[in-house]
Design a protein around this nucleic acid. Structure first.
Lengths: 109, 109
DNA sequence: CCGAATATATCGGATTTCCGATATATTGTA
DNA sequence: TACAATATATCGGAAATCCGATATATTCGG
């Protein structure tokens, strides 16, 4: 079972670090906005509408963390995003921060 | 050296999870608001004024995660906060969430 | 052929968060 | 004895965030 506290923590993570969450999913497999939004919904149980996912992906691209390429399947266009080297470095810094929280070394000034 | 990206991530953590950060510091050593605020400033480099720390501590107490007791040193009152059992359970859930992020098991629906 | 689903994109009002300003009292120090 | 520092506490305007509504175009299934 999932406690209410855990539920709230996950929701807060998804909201505050949606960019990191998106990046982590894209690291596993490059994909397009619509599909990415569904995956975030599945894994973190939060609603991710178009007004959230598209500005987010644009922001990630402006920060150089992902790279999008236009693709056409039939007449339908899709913008596939892949994590850049810079994006992988960013994720490594994020993970280092988590590790430092787990071993409490982040609390030493 | 600390990159700008890491700086921003730490700041975001401090803002979004100030309650967790406060709880983690209190877990190491129970203390009062004014001192706790200074410690958060030292470790995470963010400004924590009285309008931030006192409502936060009250909230933590309402959630049953900390317990405060009035203390008097001379005529000056201090409210010392200690983490409760429930608070320690909450921290364990938080840490489990971090671990699941590190081994990516949180991305499996 | 029509409605649902896929896919991308933006806007702006509502809500929420944030934090500076303010208040009060005590202690320590120059 | 006056000022800085310690200590707690609240309020409300400003700033930021959030997300529903809307728009457009294509594909797929009944």
């Amino acid at each position: 079972m999932e406690t209410a506290a855990l539920r709230e923590l996950k929701e807060r993570f998804a909201r505050s670090f949606m960019d990191v969450l998106a990046l982590r999913l894209l690291e596993r497999e490059g994909t397009w906005g619509y599909r990415l939004a569904s995956r975030i919904e599945e894994t973190y149980g939060v609603r991710v509408g178009p007004s959230v996912i598209y500005p987010l992906l644009r922001d990630l691209e402006e920060r150089g963390l992902v790279e999008g390429r236009e693709e056409r399947i039939g007449g339908r266009r899709r913008r596939i995003y892949e994590v850049t080297e810079r994006g992988r470095e960013f994720l490594e810094e994020y993970r280092e921060l988590l590790r430092r929280q787990l071993d409490s070394s982040d609390l030493i000034p």
